[in-house]
Design a protein around this nucleic acid. Structure first.
Lengths: 214, 214
DNA sequence: GTCTTGGTTGAGTGCTCACTCAAATAGTAC
DNA sequence: GTACTATTTGAGTGAGCACTCAACCAAGAC
């Protein structure tokens, strides 16, 4: 079961960054958890940020087998797959008593300004995630309003998930999470029941007229 | 224009925490920005976390005059006020080139696990914010489906806002933000056009049946 | 004047941070 | 075996961290 040094470091850093954040996790703690010596880390990763990048690459490379596949294999309906994926995050909150949330979202707000290479990889992770959702929505295109932008709707789903996880962890309660998902479900129900052609809502983008834009 | 030492410290810490996060901001940087000496900080705040708490109390005490009032005074329609508030966050992203987001959301994911007193105050801030949205929704109750839970819908609005700000900052683009708000607007349009009595969507809470819950 | 009190000063504390490096060792080629 | 490279070792670096503290100051009470 012994993995190589590099992998052990990535896994240890992945878990600690998820639990405590990037800045609050020390290099010493990572090497102790991985069971390697400080010098070894710097043989593979010149800086702490390089290790962070490796962690984000790990998430990128394990989206399917770690996150999607377990849901896809027990749910067939494409719309239910979307909500099944969201429910996976709810289960993570439940299992960890709200200590762990979305690994990427955690790091995004902490590091988006200061670590551009990491930010680019977070972006890749988000785009991959929404791409998977988008495939579900495309598979259900016949039930959705004709002409709806599934890419846009997939982004909305990610938005709701990230916000819901944030609020649930802050409140240490499922209430905000379940409320947000309930309204997302209600929105989907209305889209699915629509049967008409999609047209962008009248008020969008909101209030540009009030800001003096012409 | 010289404020007292305590206020200068709170303002300096507020701005630095917003821009760089809590752990990445050093005490020395805060006192330098505030133009006070290190010892003075500890006269008012025994620990760094106490300063964080004071910052969160500042946000709590300035929600109305800092955030709501500027929007309320130029928009009367309660539903448009909701989207006007959201647009305020878009303007913040625009003005700062995606460097600044929601001050509370920023700290929430970084510190929810490790700083319980701060977490409690973030919760208060979120509850206040959704309370203001809820008042708008109540004022528009005659146009919304009868019996809809405005508290729940207000939480959904906060969820979308926090997720949208996170994605916009990660992508350094308005695209995810505008997409999320567009779908929220579309959802509102459908609620407002509904004219019937509210009933919870059939699929909620999602997939409990698939997890063996009875 | 003296006393007290709230606030200020700024050098200094011990500690942990990310990171270094020369030496030792393991693995592979021939 | 030797030669060479890849990897590991672990004590050690300077810098910055949150935080301390004894002395000092200013202003009001008497």
């Amino acid at each position: 079961m012994e993995a190589n040094t590099r992998d052990r470091l990535v896994v240890a850093a992945r878990d600690l960054f998820l639990a405590k954040g990037y800045n609050a996790t020390g290099i010493n703690e990572i090497v102790r958890t991985a069971g390697v010596h400080p010098g070894s880390l710097y043989h593979y990763f010149p800086t702490k940020e390089d290790l962070l990048v490796a962690v984000l690459e790990w998430y990128r490379d394990h989206l399917y087998d770690g996150l999607l596949q377990p849901v896809w294999e027990r749910i067939d309906d494409p719309v239910e797959r979307v909500f099944g994926l969201l429910d996976g995050y709810r289960q993570l909150l439940e299992m960890t008593n709200f200590d762990l949330g979305c690994p990427i979202g955690n790091l995004a707000l902490e590091l988006a300004n200061s670590h551009p290479k990491a930010r680019a990889l977070m972006q890749v992770n988000f785009v991959q995630w929404t791409g998977a959702i988008r495939e579900c929505l495309d598979a259900a295109a016949d039930r959705l309003p004709e002409g709806i932008d599934t890419d846009s709707l997939a982004t909305h789903v990610l938005t709701v998930m990230e916000g819901a996880v944030m609020l649930a962890r802050t409140q240490r309660s499922f209430e905000p999470f379940d409320r947000a998902i309930l309204h997302l479900r209600d929105y989907f129900d209305r889209l699915l029941a629509d049967g008409t052609t999609w047209s962008a809502p009248v008020g969008c983008r909101p209030l540009s007229h009030l800001r003096g834009d012409e």
